[in-house]
Design a binder for these strands. Sequence first.
DNA 1: CCGTATAGTCAAGATACTTGACGATATTCA
DNA 2: TGAATATCGTCAAGTATCTTGACTATACGG
Lengths: 160, 160
Amino acid sequence: MVKLLDEKTEASPDHVGWRLWQASRAWQVEFAAAMRSAGHAWFSEARAGLLGHIPRNGTRQSALIERAATSKQAVQQLLDGLEAEGVLERLPDPRDGRGKLVCYTRKGLDALRDGDRIKLQIERGYIDRIGEQRFAALMDALRTLDAGRGDASAGASGPK
Amino acid sequence: MVKLLDEKTEASPDHVGWRLWQASRAWQVEFAAAMRSAGHAWFSEARAGLLGHIPRNGTRQSALIERAATSKQAVQQLLDGLEAEGVLERLPDPRDGRGKLVCYTRKGLDALRDGDRIKLQIERGYIDRIGEQRFAALMDALRTLDAGRGDASAGASGPK
DNA sequence: CCGTATAGTCAAGATACTTGACGATATTCA
DNA sequence: TGAATATCGTCAAGTATCTTGACTATACGG
C-alpha cells in the first residue's frame, strides 16, 4: 500500500491507549454537558471522578482516599468544593473521633439520579451506533481488563 | 470475607463511561511511567494528548488547535512548555506570515520512537491478559465507536 | 502515661486550562 | 488601492486540579 503523501495523518495512531483515551474523553464530555444541562452546573470531570467512588450511603473520607488513586489533599480539596456546592456534607464519625463521614445531601442524591438516567441515555446511543453485540464485546473486554489488574499495573500505580 | 453490608460497594458502577475512564487512566499511568523511566522526564499526560495530534513531519499550529479540542491558548501553553524542553520547535510558515510550523526536534523524534516501542509492549501485555480475540473485539468496538461520531457528539465538542 | 500510627487540615506551589485583549498578517471587496 | 474583516498567534490574568510538606487531633498498644 503505497501511501504517497498521507504521512500527514500519521498522528493519532491506532493504538489501544489512544482509542481508550478518545473514547473516554468523548464520553465524559457528553456526560458532563448533559449533567450541566440538567441543572447541575457544579459538575466537572474531576468531581465526577471522585463521586464515582462515593456510594449512595456515604463513606469514610479515609476509605475514599484509598479508592481514588490520588493524594488525600487532592481528595480533600475536591470534597471542600463539593461541600461548598451543597452536594456533599461531612459528618463526624461516631465510631472514630478522628474520622469524617462523607454523605450526599438531597441535592447530591438528585444529581446521582439524573446521572444514572443520563448514563443510560448515552449507553443507548452507543448501542445504536455500534450494535448490541459489539457493545457487549466492549464491556466484556473492559471488564476482563479491569479484573486482570493487580499484576500488570502493580508497578505503575502502586502506592509505593 | 463475608461482606454483610454490601450496599457499600455500590459506587463505581459498571457503566461504559466508568470502564472507559478507568481503562484509559490505567493505560496513561502505565505509559507515562514507562516514558519517564525511558529518560523522558518531561513527559506528562496533557503533553501526550497534544503530541498525539502532531504528525512526525510537523503541522501548522492552527491545524493543531483544530484537532485538539481545546482553546488555542491551552495549546499554545503546552507548546511553550514542549518547546522549552527542546521536544518541539516552532518555525515560521513560509507560506503564511502569520502562521507557525510545529516540528519535532531530534529529542522529540527520539521520544516518539520510544513511545511506539512502549505502546507495543503495553499492547502485548493487554493481549496476554484478555486474549487476542477479546483484544481484537475491543479495538473493533472502539474504532466503530469513533467512526460513528460527528452526529452524536457534534453538540458536545463543537467549536462554537 | 508514652510513643507511634492514623485521620484530617492548612498552606504553598506546580500544572493545566479558560477568558479577554491585543498585534500582525492575510483576504475580501468596493 | 485601500478599508473592513478574518485568521494566526501572543500576552496577561484568573480558575481548577493536583502535589508536597508541615501540622493538629484522636486512637491504639504497651
